[in-house]
Design a protein around this nucleic acid. Structure first.
Length: 883
RNA sequence: GGGCGGCUAGCUCAGGGGUAGAGCACUACGUUGACAUCGUAGGGGUCGCUGGUUCAAAUCCAGCGCCGCCCACCA
């Protein structure tokens, strides 16, 4: 059996082929008519803007972990994949490519641009799917969706039309975030605020009646051309007498009324604010409250308008140039009072980085209040839970301040707004391409030119991908979904909106739990980004360490609730773990010929190690299962790692070697082999969701017929506890390990040769169950083997060292050729540590307050520790006196 | 301006009232037939600072200091 197993685990040779075999067997395809309980996840569709990054790899690993786990627990699992057209992001990527090629979308025209986009979607989509396969994810490829698929487009239109007909979507002029580069509005959430060094300009506006002046502070003097009022706080004694009077706008001459509004901060600047409703969101609201006229002095390209009230010398200038010229003009005319350095936040387009120009424009809006309320309640009632829980508060706080959503974009890419205008002035929304106006029958229809915010279509993802509004089998079987695994960065942009649309259109929540994953930082603690060049390609990691290692790393760190600093060594450590397991399997498999895969039935045939490892296996099953249910898979992979390496391999298998070497029909051999086989089998099951490739590769080599682990029938079931837990026995074994370590340590001290067998004499000091184990047959055999000692009735010479562990005294005979090179320094350090330990415990136990107030078991614990410490000290002093 | 995280061994991080933990790195020894992608042993931390509560604080409370993220209509 082992002959065909290489000495090392080589994931690169195996993973692709193994994945192909899973896929060809149709193991990922969900059956909606299955009578099993259902479990479903929809993949957050990656933007088709480029390759996947490490964050995607981590999230997908976590999703796959849960899908595989649920399959093993008997669920019918649907994991639905797909991609998002990402209108504005994709348009930006392609426009950048075109610019690099010396052309532009305007130059090539709409048709050619669309062809170019289609080609891009195809090639990038294929790359993404290939990356996903390399990770070993069990997505149901037969159900893959793209947000621009015909059926999906129809769902989007359906939602839009219903909201439109319900009056929740409306068109109107309001202030929007305008990106002069993309020539489109964007929503509040897509504005990225960056701190910037600027100037604050203090400008004097003279009162019309010649009674003085008022000085305002502004960071954007170029917008003053469109001022339509001056505002002061009505409580401000400096200014309240001016309210209702008029000031004259410099350079333009317009008369501006001084108004009182609470929004004006008295402490800022001079306490007087120039009001420009056409180019500032706060001013816009002030304008709304006071019925101010809205003027625009900056157009959609970011240039000064050529309205006739704009001074000739400023018309059509770009805003930055205009600002410079205006500052000069104001200074020249003695209107500039002073200029101060000023640091403030400026809104930028999160896609292209351009500075946002707030301006008033006709756009489509979605009223949120009615959509919001049920979505708030669903989370408050715990129907949708966030993990870590603290994100619940973040969600609710944001929802509380929700404002209407600008859903239209002026892009070339995306879902067209399904609103039509006929020549007779009728307007209507339609799911299907309409043949004529429903009111007048006019056939010369014009469709609204705008497209929808990408997030409008993403908001429907969980149900639109399953065929909504049709009543499909998939919807019935797999919706609502179970987990949504995503990044905290899109809780508002996406998660909240899915909850809102889902409740409105399906009457159900879209998912039960939102698992917020870690954000991965570069090794230097900075944000990973393409522009900084500090990103890590997940495929490179897969090539280097194997998909299993990347996945185990993701499980270890992805749901800790903290951000993760990327640490390649951690990934590597899981590759080493896979290799360790591989070699564990080689050892076990070379000893299990003809052995049953179940542990030997009767306790009588098990030795103390068999019982112990089965007890520890039970504890591990419990820990791993629990970790997954608590959404803490990091605890699970750690538990498996600890168990498999440091308990099963380091102690159990080492101790089992003598029994393995006995003849195959020896009872001890059979007990050890069957126990080892059972433990290995179970460990592989526990590991499979985390590291599917190595676990399955080994599992299929175990004796017996083995189908793929995730197969519905005949695959590997998730392990159940076997009632083998025995905490007293475990404690005794821990003492045994401690004794072995102490003997090894002592051997070095007393100068014993590496392989020299030393004689020892054991004396039981009391009825301690640990002492019984240590001095029993199993204990003696194990200690003898692991520490290279032989038990004797009496020692030929006085003991070179006496150890006391858990009620057993062990005297060790001196080695034959004792070249003791005892490190007295080390002994002294230990003596000192032991004495200070005793001192600390004694003073604690002398403290009446402690004795009377601390819990009794804590006091007892201290007493036990003191006794043990004294034993230890005696041993050390004994050693020291001989050294 | 408000909120949320973080600050524990050289590095990356667990833990969370009762003697400080892991992995990696480091030191010494070791190629005995699972594995040198390994084994055995070892060194290394006043748990950001200051107070408070408690018999007992890295852990709870308050304040402060950095670092990061999110939200916000101070122009």
């Amino acid at each position: 059996m082992s002959a065909e197993m290489d000495k090392a685990w080589k994931p690169q040779d195996i993973e692709r082929e193994l994945y192909r075999s899973w896929e060809e067997a149709g193991l990922f395809i969900a059956d909606p008519s299955s009578d099993r309980p259902k479990f479903s996840i929809v993949l957050p569709p990656p933007n088709i803007t480029g390759e996947l990054h490490l964050g995607h790899a981590m999230q997908q690993s976590l999703m796959d972990l849960y899908c595989r786990y649920k399959r093993m627990r008997g669920f019918e699992v649907l994991w639905l994949p797909g991609t998002d057209h990402a209108a504005i992001a994709t348009q930006n990527v392609i426009e950048r490519q075109l610019a690099a090629e010396g052309t532009s979308k305007e130059e090539m025209g709409r048709a050619a641009f669309e062809k170019r986009v289609a080609a891009w979607y195809e090639s990038v989509g294929a790359t993404i799917v290939d990356q996903e396969r390399r990770l070993g994810v069990t997505m149901d490829w037969s159900r893959s969706r793209f947000t621009m698929d015909d059926a999906y487009v129809r769902s989007v239109r359906e939602v839009f039309v219903r909201l439109y007909n319900d009056g929740l979507i409306y068109r109107g002029p309001r202030i929007v975030n305008w990106c002069p580069r993309d020539k489109s509005s964007i929503s509040d959430l897509e504005v990225e605020w960056r701190e910037q060094e600027d100037k604050l300009y203090y400008v004097r506006y003279d009162m019309v009646d010649g009674s003085g002046h008022i000085v305002v502070a502004t960071a954007r003097p170029e917008t003053m051309l469109a001022d339509t009022a001056i505002a002061v706080n009505p409580k401000d004694d400096r200014y309240k007498h001016l309210i209702g009077r008029k000031a004259r706008l410099p350079l333009v001459g317009r008369e501006l009324e001084v108004i009182g509004d609470d929004a004006v901060e008295m402490e800022f600047g001079t306490g007087a604010l120039k009001v420009t409703p056409g180019h500032d969101p706060m001013d816009y609201e002030i304008g709304q409250r006071h019925g101010l006229e809205i003027l625009s002095c900056i157009d959609k390209s970011g240039n000064i308008t050529s309205d006739d009230w704009v001074p000739d010398t400023l018309r059509t200038l770009d805003a930055a140039t205009a600002r410079g010229r205006m500052v000069a003009m104001l200074t020249e005319r003695d209107h500039m009072v002073k200029i101060e350095p000023y640091v403030h936040s400026v809104g930028h387009c999160d896609r292209c980085g351009e500075i946002i120009e707030p301006l008033v424009d006709e756009q489509w809006w979605c009223a949120m209040a009615e959509l919001r309320d049920p979505a708030v309640k669903a989370v408050e009632d715990g129907k949708v839970g966030f993990f870590p829980e603290r994100w619940t508060r973040v969600y609710l706080d944001w929802m509380a301040g929700l404002r209407d959503w600008n859903v239209s974009r002026q892009l070339w890419l995306g879902h067209r707004v399904p609103v039509y205008y006929c020549a007779n002035g009728h307007t209507f929304a339609s799911v299907d391409e309409p043949a004529g106006c429903p009111e007048c029958g006019d056939q010369k229809l014009r469709q609204d030119p705008d497209v929808l915010d990408t997030w409008f279509s993403s908001a429907l993802w969980p149900f639109a991908t399953m065929g909504w509004p049709e009543k499909t089998k998939d919807l019935e079987a797999f919706f609502p979904t179970d987990y949504l695994v995503t990044d905290r960065g899109i809780i508002f942009l996406w998660v909240a909106r899915m909850i809102m649309t889902s409740l409105r259109f399906t009457g159900e929540i879209p998912f039960h739990s939102v698992l917020i994953t870690a954000t991965i930082q570069a090794p230097d603690g900075q944000r990973m980004s393409k522009s900084k060049g500090n990103g890590v390609n997940p495929l490179e990691m897969v090539d280097l360490y194997g998909a299993d290692a990347v996945r185990a790393w993701a499980a270890a760190v992805g749901l800790r609730g903290q951000d993760v600093r990327f640490d390649e060594e951690l990934i590597r450590s899981y590759q080493l773990f896979a290799n360790k397991l591989w070699n564990v399997a080689r050892l076990v498999l070379s000893n299990v010929e003809g052995v049953a895969s179940e542990p030997v039935a009767t306790a009588g045939e098990r030795d103390c190690f068999d019982a112990w490892i089965l007890s520890r296996l039970d504890a591990t099953i419990s820990e791993v299962t629990d970790s997954l249910e608590r959404h803490r898979p990091g605890d699970g992979i750690t538990a498996i790692y600890e168990f498999a390496w440091h308990e099963f391999a380091d102690w159990y298998l080492e101790a089992a070697k003598p029994r393995f070497r006995a003849p195959a029909d020896d009872a001890g051999h059979v007990a050890a082999a069957s126990t080892a086989l059972h433990v290995l089998d179970t460990t592989l099951r526990l590991l499979h969701p985390f590291m599917p490739f190595v676990s399955e590769t080994i599992w299929t080599r175990l004796p017996g017929e083995r189908r793929p682990m995730i197969a519905r029938d005949g695959g590997a079931a998730w392990p159940e506890m076997a009632g083998a837990a025995d905490s007293e026995g475990d404690a005794a074994m821990t003492s045994l390990f401690e004794l072995v370590r102490n003997i090894r340590d002592a051997r070095k001290d007393i100068g014993a040769g590496e392989r020299e067998r030393l004689q020892v004499k054991a004396t039981r000091l009391g009825p301690d169950p640990s002492a019984q184990l240590l001095d029993g047959d199993c204990g003696r055999a194990a200690i003898g083997w692991l520490a290279s000692v032989d038990f004797a009735e009496a020692l030929p010479q006085p003991a070179a060292r006496t150890l006391v562990v858990a009620g057993l005294e062990l005297a060790i005979a001196p080695p034959v050729s004792s070249e003791a090179a005892v490190d007295r320094g080390a002994l002294e350090r230990e003596l000192e540590a032991a004495r200070s330990n005793i001192g600390r415990l004694e003073s604690q136990l002398a403290n009446q307050q402690f004795l009377s107030k601390a819990r009794p078991e804590v006091v007892q614990q201290a007493r036990d520790r003191l006794a043990a410490a004294k034993e230890r000290l005696a041993t050390l002093e004994d050693a020291f006196s001989r050294a």
